[in-house]
């Protein structure tokens, strides 16, 4: 058999439009969130419950242990809020893993794969949607923190820097989460893969200073990525010294974002097997 000459009409415009397609997919994901708000409500509710729990149940005792001049519950609100903010981000990205895993069980993903679209837009739609969802969740959680006595020292510049840092952090963790959602064999599995992300703030400087931990744990706590991330947040919001934490935190974010992005793309482009 000879190779056929190109047949048929001239090929259609075969350029890809990743930005346009990503915007379309973002609209799709935002519609999902608006129409089925229960996941968003749960993602916002959980950090708020933890905030109230830590401030009103544990706050008096833990605050006394901080050893500051003021001490007590008021000091602890200021100490724990950056950790709760981080927890809000990890809760949202856990939701991303669930949404991605759910989406992949839908037949429409197979349709997207047979269409001439920028494939990555299926993923970027989720990423951008989650960043917007995180911004909303963070606004609510920080609002509640302010109501229960959170008194940040940050000025306008500090808040802008905090916002920028949180966007970078969310972006990085979401890409990781999109990959985790894809490797999950089921939606139930996807709801568990984010657990370590939720636990890590506890095994760092999130809820208590690392000095109070036993040696082995302290070593882990000081080197795990969430400790510099929390210390950076704390520094930006409370004016505590940031030191090299910001650079380390941004380095981790860049690393996680790049790794998550490459892993996600690779997973999505692997042979369709459903």
């Amino acid at each position: 058999m000879s190779t056929p000459a190109p047949a048929g009409p001239a090929p259609a415009d075969l350029r890809f439009h990743p930005l346009r397609d990503s915007a379309t997919m973002l609209r799709r994901n935002l519609k999902h969130m608006l129409r089925y708000p229960s996941l968003t409500v749960m993602l916002v509710g959980m950090p708020i419950v933890f905030l109230l729990l830590f401030v009103y149940v544990f706050g008096g005792t833990l605050g006394a242990g901080l050893g500051g001049a003021s001490g007590g519950r008021d000091a602890y609100v200021d100490y724990v809020t950056p950790a709760i903010i981080l927890m809000t981000v990890t809760a949202v990205v856990q939701g991303t893993a669930i949404s991605v895993a759910m989406d992949l069980t839908e037949g429409i993903i197979a349709r997207f794969r047979t269409m001439h679209i920028a494939r990555v837009s299926v993923l970027t739609g989720h990423v951008l949607g989650s960043v917007i969802q995180a911004a909303f969740a963070l606004a609510v959680v920080i609002g509640v923190a302010l109501l229960v006595g959170f008194r940040p020292a940050a000025g306008v510049g500090g808040w802008l820097a905090t916002a920028g840092f949180l966007v970078a952090l969310t972006f990085a963790l979401v890409w990781l989460s999109v990959a985790l959602g894809q490797v999950s064999k089921s939606v139930e599995a996807a709801s568990n893969v984010g657990m370590p992300l939720l636990l890590l703030p506890f095994l760092g400087s999130g809820f208590v200073p690392t000095d109070s931990m036993p040696a082995g744990l302290r070593w882990f706590a000081e080197y795990q990525p969430f400790t510099p991330i929390i210390e950076t947040l704390r520094g930006l919001l409370m004016g505590t010294p940031v030191g090299h934490n910001a650079a380390v935190a941004l380095g981790w974010c860049a690393l996680i974002a790049l790794g998550g992005h490459l892993w996600s793309k690779r997973l999505f482009n692997r042979e369709y097997a459903r």
């Binding site: 259609a12 037949g107 429409i108 269409m115």
Partner: peptide, 24 residues
């Protein structure tokens, strides 16, 4: 890519977005 630009597929399992409306 050229093949994808020319074809349409309606599979055995519905390839629709269940959370959106028909028009959407």
């Amino acid at each position: 890519d050229a093949v994808r630009a020319a074809i349409g597929v309606t599979g055995q399992f519905s390839a629709v977005d269940n959370l959106l409306t028909g028009r959407e």
